[in-house]
Simulated scan of single mutants.
Amino acid sequence: MAVSYLRRSGKKILFRNYRGPKGGELDIVARDRDFLCFVEVKARRRRSGSRPLDAVTPEKQDLIERGARSWLALLPHNDFQWRFDVVEVILEEGELPEICVVEEAF
Rank of each mutant, 00 (worst) to 15 (best):
R7A: 11
H77P: 01
V29E: 03
E93I: 00
V89F: 05
L53D: 08
G94T: 04
R16M: 11
A105L: 06
R7F: 01
L74W: 04
L6E: 05
G24M: 00
L6G: 10
C37E: 07
R83E: 06
A73F: 00
A73R: 15
L74D: 10
E25F: 05
R46H: 13
F84C: 07
R44C: 15
C100G: 00
V87M: 11
W82L: 02
V3C: 12
V29Q: 09
N78I: 00
K22T: 07
G20L: 02
R19M: 04
F35V: 02
A55H: 11
R45H: 13
P97A: 03
E59L: 05
R31W: 04
W71D: 06
L26D: 06
F35R: 11
V39Y: 05
R47C: 04
A55V: 03
D85A: 05
I13G: 10
F106E: 01
K22I: 00
Y5K: 03
P76S: 12
P52G: 09
G67Y: 01
L75F: 05
R31N: 09
I64Q: 07
D85Y: 06
A68R: 15
K12A: 13
F38C: 09
K22W: 10
D79I: 00
I64G: 07
R8A: 13
R47I: 04
R33T: 05
P21T: 12
V87Y: 13
R44L: 07
F84K: 06
F38M: 01
E98K: 14
S50M: 08
G20H: 04
P21F: 00
K42W: 04
D54W: 10
E65S: 11
R8G: 11
E88V: 00
A2Q: 03
E92R: 15
G94H: 07
T57I: 03
L14C: 12
F38A: 09
G20A: 00
C37G: 09
V101M: 02
R83K: 14
R19T: 06
L75Y: 01
S9L: 00
F38V: 05
F80W: 10
V87T: 08
F15Y: 14
H77V: 02
A2L: 03
F80Q: 05
E25G: 12
L91C: 08
E92S: 14
G94F: 09
V87S: 07
R19Y: 12
D79R: 08
Y5P: 03
D62H: 12
A43I: 02
K12W: 00
G49Y: 04
F15G: 02
L63T: 15
A105Q: 01
Q81L: 14
R44V: 15
P58W: 02
R47N: 13
I90A: 07
C37Q: 03
Y18Q: 01
N17Q: 15
L96N: 14
G49V: 05
A73W: 02
P58Q: 01
F84M: 09
E98Y: 09
Y5Q: 05
E25N: 11
D34S: 13
E98G: 05
E40H: 13
R66Q: 11
E95T: 09
A30Q: 01
S4K: 13
D54Q: 10
R7Q: 15
P97I: 03
C100F: 13
G67T: 06
F35S: 00
I28E: 07
A30E: 07
R16Y: 00
E40P: 09
R8D: 12
V87Q: 01
